[in-house]
Design a protein around this nucleic acid. Sequence first.
DNA 1: AAGACGGGGAC
DNA 2: GTCCCAGTCTT
Length: 361
Amino acid sequence: MTRLRPHEIEGMQQRLIRWYQKHGRDLPWRDTRNPYRIWVSEIMLQQTQVETVIAYYERFVAAFPSVQALAREPLQKVLLIWQGLGYYARARNLHRGARLVVSRWDGRVPDTQKELLQIPGIGRSTAGAILSLAYDRPAPILDGNVKRVLCRLFAIRRDPAKPDVLKRLWALSEVLTPGTDVHTYTQAVMDLGATICTPIDPRCTVCPLRNNCQACRRSLQHLIPVRARKEPTPHHEYALGIVRHRGRVLIRQRPEEGLLGGLWGFPNYRRRPKGTLADALHQGLHNDLGLAVESGEKTGTVRHAYTHFKITLHVFECLLLPENKTHTGKADWKWIYPSRLKDYPLAASDRKVMDRLLDRD
DNA sequence: AAGACGGGGAC
DNA sequence: GTCCCAGTCTT
């Protein structure tokens, strides 16, 4: 383990803070110490880059200005704001978390790690961010930016995802976190990772920590952090049905847990090996709703990439045969007018279908 | 310990 | 098109 002397640590903290005061970014969640707003921003930033988050954050806190406001709204309304941001479990957890904060802590976001960790969606790093940014408590964080900064500072040439490496990184983050002005320090180290100590082509010549950085001194910055080789992503094909009845279109809600949980979309079914797209659609709608359709004209395809696989959606305009009864009898299936689709949270792939291929009359 | 979980930006 | 990002929860 690298030895760090107290005066070295203090020097790094001071250089970082001074750098931040001059070069730090002005972001919408940085003009507040409101723990609820910090919480919202940190959850959004967990998976997503700053540029993408900004507009979502603004809309979210405008729609739900407080923990209480968020807690009293239905999940569907939260997902409507969140749609397109991805990792929807974050939105479900945030919503559940708001209700927990109202019921257990009378609407006050806790200021201890022990309590924060009881809130769904808040792990050690997010707890540290809330504690340091909102309450100025000396709690470390370890997000992707900080991992990269620390791996380079200490020339750690092993996969940061490995448990023992992670443990060491947490220890380093803790040692470097100051006892005072944690608020500024935490933002500074995140900003350093985002704007100087970037994944590709880090700007070491203007880095305030260049003299402390073992990777920079040994010209290893382009080799760190090491990344695990990733597997090729499988590709799946789906038949998607635009099923119409008296001017309305059929949509289905996904189960609350799992991929895209709670979101609505057009019915779609995976093509079986050796099966046809039309068969998949036929059988799927029959099994789910007892609906008999003739899959008519294929109107186009939509491609979409997820983390671990890719899909191609083949979109069919379906003819509903007259003998069908159209009462679904199920709460998770609905016939709606296309103009009302904007009231339902959709995944990005379904939004693409709607924008490109749904003929609205 | 390992896998699941989305979408978008850079090139 | 390909490669990249990333924290928490579940199993």
